[in-house]
Design a protein around this nucleic acid. Structure first.
Lengths: 222, 222
DNA sequence: TTCATGGTTCGACCGTAGCCGAACCATCTG
DNA sequence: CAGATGGTTCGGCTACGGTCGAACCATGAA
């Protein structure tokens, strides 16, 4: 009865609570697996699989298969735009499901995004890597970058041997900036933990810097 | 299971074909009545009423009651933003429900929006009224404006006697500009028809200018 | 090869939500 | 006042779609 693109189809897709939870989780820019998405949405793997199939068929998400793992991400910046716009209107009227008060600033400061560092500190790290020429467009790790991280104790050669891409830019929705993802992102966060720079909270996604870690990280970014 | 605003709720609201059709119709910026919206969506008045109640409860639409008529419009610019974003992604992937080929440019040029002139020509008229000082902020019709339209044969006094607001700015989504709505908008379009300047197509919303009408309208905008 | 893990497919169940007919209320007109 | 028109409410029907248990494929590890 009406011309124009088929809005209802994709709005209905986002309109299911489980799928909405999945898409919201993907807003971080991270690539998540079906199992993780199932956990985010609070459903079983089978139903998650069905939901993902629909999202993918509609072109809202894209998939990358690595071994037996499937990584899903938002297909597009446009999709993120829709979600943002929806958040804007949803927030204003009866914005239930609000974020926990004290956790919010902590999350913005530093949190785990899939398995690497996100938030303001994650962005700061990525910016520094760009300034120092540790990464080039792609993004790919440069030789100087590799050396810098090896000095920190990260085994770059081992990373390159794995299937997972070493370097990956991860869009941080809350800040609209990139942070470091990929195998290196994971390795760096692990290394930070080993060195006692950071601690990961049990149930939440918050990352806390220890006093030593705070100064050491600041020095590393010099 | 997930923090953040309740996206799913309002996405589901837009996700119903009938409601989506209604909202799309309202994108013109016009205020439509429940009966008209029912026609747009292809449902009966009762179901339309139910849909509208939900949209209103969620704060997506606002209502203005004038006598026994109820005028509905989008609540907000944010709502329009969501619809636009949805159109963007819906258009790109499997954009079925595409506009009819030849009608599209015609619609953009001149069409009826509720009961008045929209499209490029509608915007041109509104712009001219602003330049000439025929309307002031509000918008309200100025004395010079009233005289100009009376010269054209429009009975301004009769318009003022009615309940319906004389002057109304109507946001044209396709052009992102305003055109003339309200009682005056209706009266002007009617007058154009009487003078043989324009013809309204039967089933569609397209307005065609006659050769005489085209030159006369251009002269009027001088 | 065998086992464990990650993902998908199938089938069946169930609830919710859209839809309409009919009746009802409100406002304007004559 | 009565009649007409615009909107809403109510009740009941129907169907679509989300959900999970169980079985099935594929990959990687021992």
């Amino acid at each position: 009865m009406k011309d124009g693109p088929d809005i209802a189809r994709i709005a209905a897709l986002i309109g299911d609570p489980a799928r909405a939870a999945m898409l919201t989780a993907l807003m971080d820019g991270a690539a998540l697996t079906p199992t993780e998405l199932a956990a985010e949405a609070g459903v079983t793997k089978q139903t998650a699989s069905a939901h993902i199939a629909k999202l993918e068929a509609a072109g809202l998400t894209a998939r990358e298969v690595q071994g037996r793992h499937h990584y899903l991400r938002l297909a597009d910046g446009d999709v993120a735009t829709v979600l943002e716009a929806l958040m804007t209107v949803a927030e204003r009227r009866g914005g239930r499901r609000t974020r926990p008060g004290p956790a919010d600033p902590a999350l913005r400061y530093a949190r785990v995004c899939y398995d690497h560092l996100a938030g303001a500190q994650g962005v700061a790290l990525y910016d520094h890597m760009q300034r120092k020429g540790w990464i080039a467009d792609g993004p790919v790790l440069t030789d100087t970058g590799a050396r810098a991280f090896e000095d920190l104790g990260v085994d770059i050669a081992a990373l390159r041997a794995k299937r997972r891409p070493v370097c990956r830019a991860c869009l941080d929705w809350s800040v609209r900036r990139h942070h470091l993802g990929g195998g290196l992102g994971q390795a760096v966060l692990t290394r930070f933990e080993e060195m006692g720079w950071v601690r990961r909270a049990a149930a939440s996604r918050v990352i806390t810097f220890t006093p030593t870690g705070k100064t050491a990280f600041a020095a590393f970014l010099r």
